[in-house]
């Protein structure tokens, strides 16, 4: 458990440090109440709120990423035991990766990595 204690302490210390900075800011800022301003729009009043249904054009990439990323679940435990299990584990994993990589190459040919 002591490993977790160290992590918890680190979190605590970091948060305390940030809180200290906030306190220092409060003491030294020329005013404490936040200025509520319109967002910067080249000198204009923003015509619309920026928070909107933002079209992230790279969304096809996210799908490929998620498929490939699930593989990482297996990758770390595999890394620990591969030396012990020998050649078969290497082959199995790289066949797996090869299949996924083929998918990635296909996606590339389909133009999934271009968006703008």
């Amino acid at each position: 458990m002591s490993a977790y204690l160290g992590l918890a302490m680190s979190l605590l210390v970091a948060v305390a440090g940030v809180a200290g900075l906030y306190a220092l800011h409060r003491l030294n800022a020329v005013a404490n109440n936040p200025l509520i301003s319109k967002p910067f729009a080249s000198g204009w009043i923003p015509e619309q709120h920026a928070l909107s249904r933002y079209h992230a054009r790279y969304y096809p990439v996210t799908l490929i990423f998620l498929a490939f990323d699930v593989e990482m679940l297996f990758m770390y435990p595999w890394a620990v035991v591969v030396a012990r299990l020998g050649a078969s584990a290497v082959i199995e994993m790289f066949v797996f990766l090869g299949v996924l990589m083929a998918g990635v190459l296909w996606a590339w040919r389909e133009g999934a990595f271009k968006w703008a």
């Binding site: 800022a29 404490n32 200025l35 509520i36 928070l51």
Partner: peptide, 14 residues
């Protein structure tokens, strides 16, 4: 410089 600056928010910000 930043510690002297007034905190600032924007309209309808999260």
């Amino acid at each position: 410089r930043l510690l002297r600056q007034r905190p600032r928010g924007t309209v309808a910000a999260d």
